[in-house]
Write a protein that binds this DNA or RNA. Structure first.
Length: 974
RNA sequence: GCCGGGAUGGUGGAAUAGGUAGACACGCAAGACUUAAAAUCUUGUGACCUCACGGUCGUGCGGGUUCGAUUCCCGCUCCUGGUACCA
């Protein structure tokens, strides 16, 4: 007697897959490849909850489906194992992060294996493994040894730059470099000292050391990137973040801004994600204009996207941080202006952001000259100007820019209109409008006016057309322990790379994971953290790499994870190419996904890989939210004269509907009496002999989270509840129909809300196949949805029904070799068709439904035909691989079902000769008419008109109009 | 503010080249089997009116296009994600 014993079946096949290396991916040029990838997890101490595997299940289904379709599939998994939580834990406990990380990984792997993923575990990578981060360091070295050549529009080696400098200086070199890089000749270059040369090269390298204003988080003792800061607080932990100047390594990602933007056109991602990246890159086309300061040698450079409005400029505004601003302050303005700068500078980013409405600024006392009309305009300091964007200075055109307008209004500055239109409702951008009052660009439209103005600027050498990006260079150092060390040492204060043969530069041991007393990063605690060269011993860099370093290239390492001589074999990465399907959360839209694209483009430039976009198709799965359950405790309002001892208060709980009645004030007096008497009786029992004033109405309640794992379909398991916490051991319940129904709410899944559901528990109760099916059945992959176990019985029942198709009522395996009926074929092929369509659209939930329909139909005719059940097992196998393998082997196969071929869809089984026409009267369905599909329009019309219901509605009159769509519908208009 | 995504029964959701709204599942109700429970099976289940036949309303709200609108257009409301003085 063989029941569906999922526990045995699942263990058996998981062991089989492991032993037979079923999912081992090998390069095979004879087969088309398919690379499907999940964003690898950070192995946290809490383990997996049901939300994590959602995307993995989806990609696993695709992987298994593609295998059945004859593709050579790579489906790897690994760990993003450097990170803050392990370090935080290490600080608290003194335990080495490597140890906790190892433990967490072990647990994650176990949990993942329980779900039956078709992962090729031999490809596993861990970013914190020296074998891995050796290559992260190696990539860093290549970046250090490269610069971005704008003529070639790619990264080139720094050596080639040096030889150009030696021959011709930097005058004709078009490269991405620091703003203040001076021009020099070959003679000057050759005369530079070694130190001067290195300093100059640092201005060109793709990773470089520079003083930058950073987001310093004192509580975490580290620098955070912009996307790790939310509203002035750290994303992790919510600690305050301040702006601070520090020497930091940066990555010149801005060099790739335009290619990162253009590359988006080539990839198949959702529009919102692409849009987020476009906004993040923030390309603006405009011009740089130089304003001369009156009676001074100083000039002010501004960036504007609207040179066409240059005749409308009535003042200039500088960022408070600007050094120039301070120097322009005149004696008579000194007091107010300096005070303003002091206040504005010290206002934290957070204050400035939350306080957008307040307009503030100060006049410096100096004037600038508008190069177009020679007009003198005031120079102001204003905190609406950001130091970090463009030149940190703006030319203000109050008539056509809202912020300038508000500022001018507030300080009574001139507002001069230069575009045709009405100023009644304040400023207007007037894009495309006719330019007026603007000298030689008057009577032109925006585009032409801009072209002409730029020509003028370039002719006079007082500006040029310019493209500005919002994106900043990415800071690449963290003052942290648990990250990749940078392969850099310092000689005379200048950075040099260690030799490649000394890679990996292994993370040293330290006594504590905290910064040193004088604020140095934890690596400063390491003994002998120096680099030995022929010239002596030099200190190594003490900062480590940020979290995104290791995750920016792991998809290449998966193809060849054990390679010791290169980051991956070129032939292998060429074979696997770009990731065909990447599944992960949309929260990585501007971090990981941008950095990965950047590094891929760089690796492409230096010839290490052959693709320049890593992720061809991406799907962003929606987060699974928690669904909390609540119980409602009656507030026992009893006063007792207890003497010394505290009275024991009764724990009495009422159900959701009683609570609702109490809240709405519609509870009956009898119910109140019942509740109070239960409370009073309980009190008496708990405190025998004690005198007390019994509780009377009205009833007050307090709400309490209850562990969702002891609630089933919102019904509380009373025994488990009593055992949950000692104080609840003699809880009393006022039930309805013998049940305690809890309240519920959707919240974030978190321990403190007792709503975390562990996949292990679901697997224990229903099996991994049920979990997989159910996660997919929950709804569209991309949608955010709460986890709710309420419907899980349905898919579990489905699997049992599926099992029963292959078994007699007595539980014996039995299939028939008889020829299936037309209906049986039809049921199967409907499901095949649907599955093919759904896989193309990544619509996993609807496939599960179609399996259910198919099995229901086959069950109702008690089908047990091999010709139906064999393909059915294959069809279901990507979703429910364990049961399918078992059925497949029962069907007599000796190899894994993964080696089967996906059943071919045959349209002819779905062909119908007749169709049940819905007959509508004025667009409302009134009758049904079963007609042959070969009938002509006229014949259908005739049949419809003859119908009794139609006759009734017509009531003897002729229809105004008849719409007949063969095979679809009949509509009679009356 | 700006840029995305969304709103369908008691619940999760299905259906878009415009063509039977509510597939599939949960829950609920009734019944069968059972000493009983569980499990399983059968039937019903959007709301309202009606004994019934049947009818009216119904896909966030208000309009429009159409023989016909969950689907297209215009105007709103609410929820949700991103972003935030980017010149």
């Amino acid at each position: 007697m063989a029941e569906y014993t999922f526990r045995e079946i699942e263990k058996k096949w998981q062991a089989y897959w492991e032993k037979n290396q079923t999912f081992l991916a090998k390069v095979n040029p004879d087969k088309p490849k398919f690379y499907t990838l999940d964003m690898f997890p950070y192995p946290s101490g809490a383990g997996l909850h049901v939300g994590h595997p959602l995307g993995y299940i989806a990609s696993d289904i695709v992987a298994r489906f593609k295998t059945l379709k004859g593709f050579n599939v790579l489906h790897p998994m690994g760990y993003d194992s450097f990170g803050l939580p392990a370090e935080q834990y290490a600080i608290q406990t003194g335990q080495h992060p490597a140890i906790t990380t190892e433990q967490n990984i072990k647990r994650y792997t176990e949990q993942l294996k329980n779900i039956g993923f078709a992962f090729d575990w031999s490809k596993e990578v861990r970013t914190s493994n020296p074998d891995y981060y050796k290559w992260t360091q190696w990539i860093f070295m290549q970046l250090f040894n490269s610069y971005y050549d704008q003529d070639a529009d790619k990264a080139l080696s720094i050596d080639s730059l040096i030889s150009r400098f030696e021959k011709e200086g930097n005058k004709n070199v078009k490269a991405v470099c620091d703003d203040e890089t001076p021009t020099f000749t070959a003679e000057q270059w050759n005369a530079y000292s070694e130190k001067e040369k290195q300093e100059m090269l640092l201005k060109y390298r793709l990773t470089f050391l520079a003083e930058t204003t950073v987001n310093w988080c004192a509580a975490l003792g580290t620098v955070l990137s912009n996307d790790e800061v939310k509203d002035g607080f750290s994303e992790r932990g919510g600690h305050p973040v301040e702006r601070k100047k520090m020497m930091q390594w940066s990555m010149r990602i801005t060099a790739y801004a335009d290619r990162l933007l253009k590359g988006l056109e080539k990839v198949d991602w959702s529009e919102p994600i692409k849009e987020m990246q476009r906004n993040w890159i923030g390309k603006s086309i405009g011009a740089e204009v130089i304003f001369q300061v009156k009676d001074s040698n100083e000039t002010i450079k501004v960036f504007t996207t609207r040179v066409d409005t240059i005749y409308g400029v009535t003042y200039l505004a500088l960022a408070p941080e600007s050094d120039l601003a301070a120097s322009l302050i005149t004696e008579d303005q000194r007091e107010t202006a300096e005070a303003y700068i002091e206040v504005a500078k010290n206002r934290s980013e957070r204050e400035r952001m939350s306080d957008v409405k307040t307009i503030s600024g100060a006049f410096t006392g100096s004037y600038a000259i508008n190069p177009f009309n020679g007009e003198e305009i005031q120079i102001w300091v204003a905190d609406y100007v950001l130091a970090g964007y463009g030149t940190g200075a703006v030319m203000a055109v109050p008539a056509h820019d809202e912020r300038d307008y508000n500022f001018a209004k507030h300080f009574g500055l001139e507002i001069r209109q230069v575009i045709e239109g009405s100023m009644e409702e304040g400023s207007f951008p007037g894009k495309g409008g006719l330019i007026i009052n603007s000298g030689f660009i008057s009577n032109l439209y925006m585009k032409d006016a801009m072209t002409k103005a730029i020509e003028f600027l370039e002719e006079k050498g007082i500006g040029k057309g310019k493209i500005q990006y919002r994106m900043r260079d990415a800071i690449f150092t963290r003052q942290r322990y648990w990250g990749e060390p940078l392969p850099v040492y310092f000689k005379e204060g200048l950075p040099y790379l260690i030799e490649e043969k000394d890679l990996p530069l292994v993370l040293p041991e330290v006594d504590k994971y905290l910064p040193t007393e004088d604020g140095e990063p934890p690596l400063a605690r390491a003994k002998d953290w120096n680099y030995k060269t022929a010239d002596g011993e030099f200190p190594l860099e003490r900062s480590t790499m940020p979290g995104w370093a290791g995750s920016s290239w792991y998809f290449f390492r998966y193809t060849d994870p054990k390679n010791e001589s290169e980051l991956a074999d070129k032939g292998t990465t060429d074979y696997w190419g770009a990731v065909d399907l990447y599944i992960g959360g949309s929260e990585h839209a501007t971090g990981h996904l941008l950095y990965s694209r950047f590094w891929t483009k760089f690796l492409y430039d230096i010839g290490v890989v052959s693709i320049d976009e890593p992720f061809q198709k991406m799907i962003n799965q929606g987060m699974i939210q928690g669904r909390s359950n609540f119980v409602y405790r009656v507030f026992p309002r009893i006063s007792a004269s207890s003497g010394d001892s505290q009275p024991k208060l009764p724990q009495v709980f009422v159900t959701k509907s009683t609570r609702d009645k109490i809240i709405e004030g519609v509870i009956s007096e009898e119910e109140v009496k019942e509740i109070t008497s239960v409370v009073n009786d309980k009190f008496k029992k708990l405190n025998p002999g004690m005198e007390f004033n019994p509780m009377v109405g009205p009833v007050k309640l307090s709400e309490m989270h209850v562990d969702v794992n002891i609630v089933y379909n919102d019904q509380l398991n009373l025994e488990k509840f009593k055992a949950w916490r000692p104080d609840l051991a003699d809880a009393e319940f006022i039930l309805e129909d013998g049940k305690y129904i809890c309240g519920s709410e959707v919240e974030k899944m978190s321990k403190s809300k007792y709503n975390v559901v562990n996949p292990d528990d679901i697997i224990e109760r229903y099996g991994a196949d049920t979990l997989r099916l159910y996660e997919m059945f929950l709804g569209p992959l991309e949608q955010f949805k709460p986890w709710n176990t309420n419907g899980i019985d349905g898919v579990f029942k489905f699997l049992r029904k599926l099992w029963n198709l292959y078994h007699t009522q007595a539980g014996e395996f039995q299939v028939s070799d008889a020829e299936p009926s037309k209906d049986e074929y039809k049921a199967l092929h409907k499901a095949i068709k649907k599955m093919e369509e759904d896989m193309a659209n990544f619509s996993f939930n609807t496939s599960v439904s179609s399996f259910m329909i198919c099995v229901n139909e086959l069950s109702s005719v008690k089908s047990n035909k091999r010709k139906i059940l064999e393909p059915l097992a294959i069809l279901v196998s990507p979703y429910a691989p364990h049961i399918s393998e078992e059925l497949w082997s029962l069907l007599g196969h000796e190899t894994s079902i993964t080696e089967a071929t996906f059943p071919a869809f045959d349209e002819s089984y779905l062909k119908e000769s007749a169709f049940e026409y819905p007959v509508m009267i004025n667009g409302k369905m009134r009758a049904k008419l079963n007609l042959d599909l070969s009938l002509s329009k006229e014949e259908i019309e005739k049949a419809a008109l003859a119908d009794e219901t139609v006759q009734k509605w017509l009531d003897g009159k002729a229809p105004k109009k008849m719409i007949v769509v063969p095979g679809k519908i009949v509509n009679v208009v009356i």
